[in-house]
Nucleic acid binder design. Sequence first.
DNA 1: TTCGTGATAGAG
DNA 2: TCTATCACGAAG
Length: 203
Amino acid sequence: MRSRIIRTTFFRRDPVACARELVGTELIWGTCAGKIVETEAYLAENDEACHTFSRPTARAFVGRNKAGAAYIYFSYGAHWMLNVLVKGASNGFVLIRALQPLRGIELMKKRRGVNDDKRLCSGPGKLTEAFEITNRHHEMNLCVDPRHCFAHSGEDVDVVADERIGITRSAHHRWRFTVRGSKYVSVPVRSLTRSSIDRSSSL
DNA sequence: TTCGTGATAGAG
DNA sequence: TCTATCACGAAG
């Protein structure tokens, strides 16, 4: 059987395209796995929300690592965030924001102290807790070890683009991608309100 | 809506 | 040393 593991070449493209296409694939981590239902793209250049904008360590990380490396950082004194390094025509990261749990669900419930499947991995800090992802995985190559990798699912998904959330700078880019209608996302996609129509049409 | 939490970076 | 700033989540 042909391996479903997503190889390095996948991450040698535009980070925004990568973020969109990672939606619907699987994240495999030890005995746990989940379908990626939400991602966000961050660009290493001209994107004030990206860590490379204000963190020398992030810029060094990009220079030092290959596409497909894990960029993991600690946020708000409580949560680990999982990103993948993308190095194509432009460099950047894809933040993994939410998963639909597929395997290892009992273990996830135990780690999270939560019973509702929909709340196990519905946020970037939640999924790292459910999968026990920490800084010990920082800089790990996610394209070689079948126990820590992304995998093609063969499933066709309907992807929606929307504005990134939880940031203040460069917030207008529609670089958040979700599975249309998924109940496993962190925050529901904004409905097309009057103000959002006005804003997108005035871009 | 508010608040805890700690790493990081830049200013003084 | 001090301070601001978070790509968050849970409780209220």
